[in-house]
Simulated assay, not measured.
Amino acid sequence: MLSYFKNIKGDKAIWGIVALLALFSFLPVYSASSNLVYVVGNGTAVSHLIKHAFLLLLGFGIIYGVHKIPMHFFKGLSIIAMPIVLLLLGYTLAQGKTIGGANASRWINIPFVGFSFQTSTLAAVVLMIYVARYLAKIKNKVVTFKESILPLWLPVFLVVVLILPANFSTAAIIFFMVLTLTFLGGYPFKYLLGIVGTGIACLALFILIAKAVPDLFDNRIDTWENRIANFFNGEDTSEDYQIERAKIAIASGGVLGKGSGKSVQKNFLPQSSSDFIYAIIVEEYGLVGGLVVMFFYLLLLFRIVVVANANPSVFGKLLVVGVGLPIVFQAFINMAVAVELFPVTGQTLPLISSGGTSIWMTCLAIGIVLSASNKNPVKEKKVVDESNPLDVLSEQL
């Protein structure tokens, strides 16, 4: 075990932040799992805690393995992984799973292991690496919009379109993160305005077709409309019930909270161990606990910016921002939903909420950031190992 610690590389502050968030997660997950046990009738609190520990252990294994991969390998890996991701997204959507008549095709079952996998989370990480690779390639070059359509925007729109029918919030976050990365990467702003307009037009067309021909394909448009409408007018619905319970939990927490495991609303709040776990944290640990959690995510953001700024390569800078920024962005969306600053989205709190895929993909992204934070990163101009196909492909791309 000590040999593993000696081999840990990369930004030690990020390692520490991630470890502290993961260790802290055991307390609210164990407490909130009582909702699954006594209300839903699913397992025991200990079994959920053991499952969470297993998922985190595997997640840290992913971090350790990925952070040992040289940063430039991710260029070639993104090219290889992109068509695989598109096939997985297509297969996931084609399953046609529905809940209450709405499209719920978000997961695929992994044979023999009893786990389901949310393909959109993998797609998000792969796409951000792919976009970072392209932006690094065209840096200091004059590229027309027409030249960037096929290599950049076609994969982006394919990923978003395949995720959109089943998961609007994830599709919107991915699209926004891509726009943010391309802006930071120096892609012409006038072209970005055209992409935003095209995206809005495509979304409007999708909604119009779904409304005009509701039997054409399953979708969640009614759910989107209800959540947005409820956010603005406060009608009593299931989503409004979640928000009201979350606000009761936060209000009853006070400054110092009720104490670990003493939440009352965890027994009434659906998804209390995942989507609304921040409300349980504030109820049990108060305003102080909620601010401390927020502080650690801000600290993680600060270290991501430091690592990106310190990396000597353009690809390294964009890679760190591309895979690191969505982690913090998702965390603040989760917190904003709990305090009704944002409509219900179904986004988990990274490294704290229960759930396998979200933990693993967050750990994958963190491993990539740590790979780029190694003290001796690979320069843009390097000696290519001709015997390594990924090295050759990375250099060519």
Score class of each variant (00 low, 15 high):
Gly234Cys: 02
Arg220Cys: 03
Pro214Ala: 08
Gly186Lys: 08
Ile228Gly: 11
Met177Ser: 12
Asp218Arg: 12
Asn226Phe: 09
Cys202Pro: 01
Ala249Tyr: 00
Glu239Arg: 06
Phe206Glu: 06
Asp215His: 08
Arg220Tyr: 09
Trp224Val: 12
Arg220Ser: 09
Ile243Thr: 15
Asn219Ser: 01
Ile243Met: 10
Leu179Asn: 05
Ser252Val: 13
Tyr191Ser: 00
Leu208Ser: 07
Gly254Pro: 13
Thr180Met: 11
Met177Trp: 05
Glu225Leu: 15
Ile248Glu: 09
Asn226Gly: 11
Asp218Thr: 15
Leu208Ile: 13
Phe206Arg: 01
Phe232Gln: 13
Ser238Ala: 15
Val178Leu: 10
Asp222His: 10
Thr223Arg: 03
Phe189Pro: 12
Val196Lys: 02
Phe231Ser: 08
Tyr191Cys: 06
Asp222Leu: 09
Asp215Arg: 07
Gly194Pro: 02
Phe217His: 11
Asp240Arg: 12
Ser252Asn: 15
Ala210Asp: 05
Met177Val: 08
Ile248Leu: 11
Thr198Asn: 12
Tyr241Leu: 13
Ala201Gly: 00
Arg227Val: 05
Met177Pro: 01
Ile209Leu: 13
Leu181Trp: 04
Asp218Ile: 08
Ile207Asp: 03
Cys202Glu: 08
Gly253Trp: 00
Val213Arg: 11
Asp215Lys: 07
Ser252Pro: 11
Asp240Val: 10
Lys247Cys: 07
Val178Ala: 05
Thr180Arg: 05
Val255Asn: 04
Ala251Lys: 10
Pro188Glu: 02
Ile195Pro: 00
Gly197Gln: 02
Gln242Tyr: 03
Tyr187His: 06
Arg245Met: 11
Asp222Phe: 07
Pro214Leu: 14
Trp224Gln: 03
Ala249Lys: 01
Phe206Ser: 14
Ala212Leu: 13
Ser238Pro: 02
Gly254Glu: 06
Phe183Ile: 08
Trp224Ile: 15
Ala246Glu: 07
Leu193Ile: 08
Glu235Gly: 13
Phe183Lys: 06
Ile221Lys: 01
Ile209Arg: 14
Leu184Glu: 04
Asp236Gly: 11
Gly194Glu: 05
Tyr187Glu: 05
Met177Gln: 10
Phe183Asp: 04
Leu193Pro: 00
Ile250Leu: 04
Cys202Met: 14
Phe232Val: 10
Met177Asp: 10
Leu203His: 09
Trp224Met: 14
Gly234Val: 13
Ile228Trp: 04
Ala251Phe: 10
Pro214Lys: 09
Lys190Trp: 07
Val255Gly: 08
Ile243Phe: 00
Leu208His: 10
Tyr241Asn: 11
Phe217Ser: 12
Arg227Thr: 04
Tyr187Phe: 10
Ala246Gly: 04
Lys190Thr: 12
Gly185Arg: 00
Cys202Asp: 03
Thr180Tyr: 14
Thr223Val: 08
Leu205Lys: 08
Ile200His: 01
Ser238Leu: 12
Phe217Leu: 10
Ile243Arg: 04
Ile209His: 10
Arg220Lys: 02
Asn233Ile: 11
Thr198Pro: 00
Thr223Asn: 13
Ala210Asn: 03
Leu193Tyr: 02
Phe189Gln: 14
Leu192Ser: 02
Ile228Thr: 11
Ile195His: 03
Phe176Val: 15
Phe232Arg: 12
Leu193Val: 09
Ile221Phe: 04
Ala212Tyr: 04
Thr182Ser: 11
Glu239His: 13
Lys247Gln: 14
